[in-house]
């Protein structure tokens, strides 16, 4: 059984990382890939270009706050933004199941076009494949994108004391999808946070020297991304539970579902690691951006060389937060 690919290999957590290391890095390894960033940084002539790709298989394909089309554009744009790039051009590869409703395809395509246009991105090339019924589930989309790195932005080394900012409430996307997948009959304002993030970068122009790095915490949630950052930097991370922005409804549904919101995907949020002495200013600046009013400083890097992430609650209780392991399955007790 251990020689077969399991669903957990695609959840963005420990198993995905293992697969990437054991298979993809082994065969593809080069200095650009091994940086392990959300987007590759390419030096072509005098230009520094960001390049990335992402594939979307979300079920259901339409959900409150978005659809697979919008998500596929946002996902790639946001990966480019995390390396300080202005997204410019995208490709769109679609695999469609035989029998798929043409009207739905039009709707998804229109949604992609609208999202790209709002973000100032052009979809300039594409590919279509149709496979027999059952070979894929409805529609899968791949997008790749390139962007121009702004003001020669460089990812910088993390130091103890550096602060971590999240740009809005967490777990909105994954919770919305879970409600749809488990067909929960709950009332409440549940919407995916799926949004292009370039707007944030524009506001932060003056602070780019103080931003160590940026990540978008999609699959595996902020817990998994922060664990990667701890390992990458070689320093531990302390999070303050009361500072982590989460809407009450979202927290309640996760409690009910037996899921931990720290592991639930965001699709319109960014984690930024910033210099401590500029962290308040940067936070204030981010909070001026629409959709980012709930941004908070959620914790910081420790001098401790053990790359653990722990969370501390309002009465001092501590708990270690690990990367997502295995498939995310509702806890029953």
């Amino acid at each position: 059984m251990d020689n077969a690919i399991k669903l957990c290999h695609g959840n963005g957590g420990k198993d995905t990382m293992q697969l990437i290391t054991d298979v993809f890095y082994k065969h593809f390894l080069n200095p650009i890939l091994s940086q392990g960033l959300d987007a590759a940084v390419l030096e072509i002539g005098k230009e520094r270009i960001a390049f990335t790709t992402d594939t979307f298989v979300v079920k259901p394909i339409f959900f409150p706050g978005g659809d697979i089309g919008k998500l596929s554009v946002c996902g790639t744009i946001n990966d480019l933004v995390t390396v300080g790039a202005k997204p410019l051009y995208m490709s769109c590869g679609i695999i469609i199941e035989e029998g798929f409703d043409l009207e739905l395809l039009k709707k998804i395509t229109a949604s992609m076009a609208e999202t790209a246009s709002l973000a100032g991105v052009k979809i300039v090339t594409g590919d279509t494949k149709v496979v027999e019924k059952g070979a894929v589930d409805q529609i899968f989309i791949n997008t790749s994108g390139i962007g121009q790195i702004q003001d020669n932005y460089q990812v910088k080394k993390i130091h103890p004391g550096d602060q971590i900012i999240v740009t809005g409430t967490i777990a909105e996307h994954g919770t919305t999808i879970a409600i749809e997948q488990y067909k929960l009959k709950v009332k409440g304002n549940f919407r995916s946070d799926c949004t292009p993030l370039y707007e944030i970068l524009k506001h932060l122009e003056d602070y780019m020297d103080h931003i160590k790095l940026m990540r978008d915490p999609t699959r595996g949630g902020i817990a998994t991304t922060l664990n990667e950052l701890a390992v990458h930097s070689g320093y531990g991370i302390r999070l303050l539970e009361k500072n982590i922005p989460i809407r009450k409804e979202v927290a309640a549904i996760n409690e009910l579902l037996g899921l931990d919101p720290l592991y639930i995907a965001c699709e319109g949020r960014m984690l930024l690691v910033v210099d401590k002495d500029k962290s308040r200013e940067i936070l204030h600046c981010i909070q001026q951006v629409s959709n980012c009013r709930d941004a908070q400083i959620i914790g910081g890097f420790l001098t401790d060389r053990d790359p653990y992430v722990y969370i501390e609650n309002s009465f001092g209780g501590r708990k270690i937060i690990k990367s997502l392991e295995g498939e995310m399955i509702p806890r029953i007790c």
Partner: peptide
């Protein structure tokens, strides 16, 4: 069945393994 029970192994395999 309920949640995380599917991850637990019997003598050799888990219920989750059966999905493959």
């Amino acid at each position: 069945t309920f949640g995380d029970l599917v991850r637990v192994r019997g003598a050799y395999e888990s219920i989750l393994d059966q999905r493959i």
